[in-house]
Design a protein around this nucleic acid. Structure first.
Lengths: 239, 239
DNA sequence: TTGATGAATTGATATACAATTGATTATAGT
DNA sequence: ACTATAATCAATTGTATATCAATTCATCAA
């Protein structure tokens, strides 16, 4: 017995469950990409400051959940094919310090019929959703999403909007994103920015325009995102 | 046993998988055309610095995926049906109007030994290359590339710098980029910006930091790019 | 035109060593 | 009973090297 074991861990989950949940979060969030190989168990255990046996319990848990493939003599390989938000593994906002758990609060939801801001719906009816996006609880970005109203047959609830919209689309409406294009530039923040949101932010923000197409090649989404470059960056990866 | 084998390959995929993924990317991207014949296995293995058996594992993998036809006594032939539908992402600078033929002029090439700007070389020796990048002839971005001098065994010529460095590395030195990460933010342009380069540009530019790793997982490149948001945007495309 | 020959190339297999995970056992704390 | 640590050994894979078999292809001669 070396260090703490259980003395200082009162009220917390067992170590192996904490580890497996941490890794599961990273896999689902796309921090660890599909196909990626983890460090050797002994190296990883040493880095985490735990015994190999404990780590192996955590990895076995991930294997049961289908998130990890364990190959004797080779290594542990991440399997993340089932989730629909694999895009986040490649393009996403994250903290300058790395990572960050995303959350969002809704500013407004409006049905807009005639507009020149966007033009991809056939009927010309849109939903415009404005959200404040946070990473680890701190304000990171302002977001304005435009949806083709013809798609939205089920009423949108705040619950849907604070979660992943893509998840909602796939499970409720049977459509999913098959292609995404992001255009990144710099701009001033929009006028609907709350005064208390990133008060120290510079007048120059990062600006992302995202266009999303569904599996039939129809444009289904257009969004604008202004992010505070003092705390947040846009990350693009290519494996 | 030759050199490193697995010592420096922690967390990286097995070599034969790295090789097959690299070749698969080149086939899908059209770098290697349909029907093209690969080098003899022994030649190719020697150029890549691996054993024939390892290369053969990689080629067998490609054959399983239907990307390669292997004819005993003749050679390995690429089969690119174009029906492949795997995830593919990429990112680049392009004009606001779309596209743009890239070109570059060199501002300076310096050998720098002690610096705190970057830190990824073991010896601490770098080449710093500063370029002006143009799209369709108009100024688009300023670029500062840092290379590990330990890699550069062959003298760099201006030809290499205006062409793709990646191509040079792969064919001449047997190393290639297997992973890239871009971090996009906003910033002021650097002080070495020529006065006549984008004179109308705003004081706030788009700013990209790129990190590139080779097939061994060693960082081999770091670059900074400032782009003029009046003319240029950073584009990220997925699938 | 035909057939034989030999070089070049890939196919297949075996060996040796290293690296990695799988599994078991023992010990101790809560 | 559950959790955590530690120390084993076994089983599998990864890589390098070597050797031989099978196939293709070009060349040459009849």
């Amino acid at each position: 017995m070396t260090t703490e074991q259980n003395a200082t861990r009162r009220g917390r989950l067992p170590m192996h469950l904490e580890i497996s949940e941490m890794l599961a979060r990273e896999i689902k969030a796309g921090v660890i990409l599909d196909g990626e190989k983890l460090e050797p168990e002994r190296v990883m255990a040493k880095r985490l400051g735990i015994a190999v046996g404990t780590l192996r319990k955590a990895l076995a848990q991930l294997h049961e959940n289908g998130l990890l493939e364990r190959v004797q003599g080779s290594g542990n390989y991440v399997r993340n094919t089932g989730t629909d938000n694999t895009i986040y593994g490649y393009f996403r906002l994250e903290l300058l310090t790395g990572g960050g758990l995303p959350s969002a609060t809704i500013v407004s939801v409006d049905a807009i019929t005639d507009t020149d801001t966007v033009r991809f719906s056939e009927q010309g009816d849109y939903y415009r959703i404005r959200r404040l996006r946070h990473l680890n609880g701190t304000g990171a970005a302002l977001e304005e999403i435009w949806l083709d109203a013809a798609y939205v047959t089920t009423p949108i609830t705040p619950q849907h909007l604070s979660d992943s919209l893509y998840q909602f689309y796939k499970s409720e409406l049977g459509i999913w994103i098959s292609r995404v294009e992001d255009s990144i530039s710099a701009d001033q923040p929009p006028d609907w920015r709350p005064a208390d949101f990133c008060p120290a932010a510079k007048p120059c923000w990062g600006y992302v325009e995202r266009t999303g197409w569904d599996q039939h090649g129809r444009q289904m989404e257009f969004s604008k995102t202004w992010f505070d470059t003092d705390t947040t960056r846009y990350l693009a990866r290519w494996k």
